[in-house]
Each structure stands twice: as C-alpha cells, then as structure tokens.
C-alpha cells in the first residue's frame, strides 16, 4: 500500500512537470510574434521594429526558451503566473482564482444533477432489463450523448427562457441563472452515467454472491442496494471522476453560451484575445486540477474496495 502511494506520487510529479512544459510550450510555440502583438495592442497602431524589440526585452522573450521556462515555472511555483495581456493587466493567478469558484459551482451542480438523474435511471433499467424503462433510458442516453450541448443550450433557452419565460438565460445574477447552464452541462455526463450504472449493476447482479443473498432470503431491496449498487459503485465513481474532467471542458462552451463568467469563459476570451500568459496559466492550472482529481479517484478506489485497501498487507 505504501509502495503504491509512493509510486503514484512519483508519477504524479512527472506528469505535473509535463503539464507545466506543455502549458509553457502552448504559449511560446504559437505562430506570430507576441511582442509585436502586445505592443500594437497597447499602442493601438503599427509598431516600429525598435518598439517591438523593446517590448521583447521587457517580456524576456529575447532570452533562450529554457531560461524563459525556468523563470515562468519558478514564478508559477510561487503562485505568480504573470500578468494578463487583456483584462486590465490583472494578475493571471488572481483572475483564475476569482473565476474558479463559479466554474466549480456550475460543474458541481451539473454533476449532482447528472448523478441524481442517471443513477436511479440506470438502476431502474438494470432491474427491469428489456423493459420499457430500460429501452427508454437507452434512447434517452443515446440522445444525451449525441445531441451537442451547444445545441441543447439554445433549445432550452428557447423553451424556458423565450417561450415560457420561466428562467433567465444569460448571466450570473441569481440561483435561477444556474439552472439552464447546469442542465446543459449535465446532459452528456448523465447519458454516460446512466448506461454505465446499468451495465455495471447488471454485471454485479450476475455475480454469484448476489444469488447467495437471494437464496438466503435477503430482501430484494437489500440485495440491490447493499450488495449490488455498493459493488457497482467502483466503476461508477471512476466515471463520475472522469466526467468531472469532461464537465470542466464542457464548461468552456456552456459558460461562453450563457455568458457565465467562469474559468472557461475567461480562457475562451483569452484565446480569442491571444492573451498568452492567461492561456498558459489556464492550461497549467486546469492540468494540475485534472491530475489531482485523477489521484482523488484512485484514492476513492482504496476506500471503495477492501481488496485494494488490504493489498500488500499479507492477507
């Protein structure tokens, strides 16, 4: 167990290092001259070569790439990700931290929505295999996985915002503003989760120990939940963890559509504005979050499965 954790942390460090290189490279390998871009943006007109050279020196772009990386990564370790080129020259780290809670709020709401809808639906489908419920859940899941979120978003806006006037469609001012974006975001994950809950529960329900439970006269509810779902929870947890990553990626699109001022919108605005420090900071930040989340999933395994928990204890 301890050896496993040490190995896990070592590979984590390597991947984090890789993420930092990737983040840095994405900003510096981009075509075009960032110094000229920034100079002309601040000046508002064509820059002379001297002006660009001055800017290049100011940004440190005249130094070798390795040196630039070291100073950037050194700053990143101390929480300094540089200054954003758009956004009134705010600190990138401040921008990210300011936006993070809003995206987390959106993603968590979406995840909860997905779990609340998908797990019961998947359980019902598994329980009554080939029933109407099962087929309906299959169709719903197929549609949920196929209809793009950015299309659903507008359908929802049209129905609930424009026609029924039940919900606000843009912005971030009230809890009601959370409803449509999180439903949109939840859709894809809910679809995957429904099918996965069904298939993993079916697999568990086919196990011999489930038959043992029934043969010993346990109540079917106890068999289904205490033994069935409890054992299916391991793959379900994995998918919830993985979907969280997909949710954060989907949030980029959803935030942009609903004008939700979160990380995703920040990044997309940064991309459109070619704000390289912001893009680098965003990639490093989200990459770190994903890596840590994968670690959390692995630790959740240990919690969920005694076979893993007791590994290496000479059972």
């Amino acid at each position: 167990m301890r050896r496993y954790i040490v190995r896990r942390l070592a590979s984590l460090a390597v991947v984090l290092w890789g993420v930092s290189i990737l983040a840095f490279a994405l900003g510096s390998l981009a075509p075009g001259d960032p110094a000229r871009l920034l100079m002309e943006r601040t000046l508002g007109h064509q820059a002379t070569d001297e002006e660009v050279a001055g800017m290049r020196q100011e940004l440190g772009l005249d130094r070798p790439a390795v040196e630039q990386y070291v100073s950037w990564a050194g700053g990143a370790v101390r929480g300094d990700l540089g200054t954003s080129w758009s956004n009134r020259n705010d600190q990138v780290s401040d921008l990210l931290l300011e936006r993070l809670p809003r995206t987390v709020m959106l993603a968590v709401t979406a995840m909860l929505t997905a779990v609340i809808v998908a797990v019961p639906l998947g359980v019902a489908a598994a329980r009554r295999r080939n029933s109407v419920t099962d087929h309906a859940s299959r169709v719903a899941a197929l549609l949920g996985a196929s209809v793009p979120g950015f299309f659903v978003a507008y359908l929802l806006m049209f129905v609930f915002g424009v026609r029924l006037r039940l919900l606000p469609i843009f912005g971030f001012d009230s809890p009601q503003h959370l409803v449509l974006p999180s439903i949109t975001l939840a859709l894809g994950s809910a679809a995957i989760l429904t099918r996965l809950t069904r298939s993993s529960l079916l697999e568990v329900l086919g196990e011999d120990y489930i038959r043992v439970g029934r043969a010993m006269g346990l109540r079917s509810r106890a068999v289904l939940f205490r033994h069935g779902l409890r054992n299916a929870v391991i793959p379900i947890l994995t998918v919830i963890g993985l979907s969280f990553g997909h949710l954060l990626a989907g949030a980029v699109i959803v935030e942009w559509i609903f004008n939700w001022p979160g990380l995703g919108k920040l990044a997309l605005d940064g991309i459109h504005a070619r704000d390289y420090p912001l893009i680098q900071g965003f990639v490093l930040f989200t990459g770190t979050v994903f890596v840590l989340m994968n670690l959390a999933i692995d630790l959740a395994y240990v919690w969920a499965d005694p076979r893993v928990r007791f590994q290496g204890q000479g059972a």
Binding site: S11, V14, V15, V19, L22, L26, A249, F282, G287
Partner: peptide, 23 residues
Amino acid sequence: RVVDTILAFPSLLLAIVVAGLFK
C-alpha cells in the same frame, strides 16, 4: 510521458486551446 501529460487533460479542452493558437 508526453502521452500521459496530454491524456491528463480532457481532449476537447486541449483541442480548444491548441486550435485557438492558429488562424
């Protein structure tokens, strides 16, 4: 290790960033 690093991100997210670098 390069593969691990890229796989650490959701593919769509990274594709958005990479696509954004180009015209």
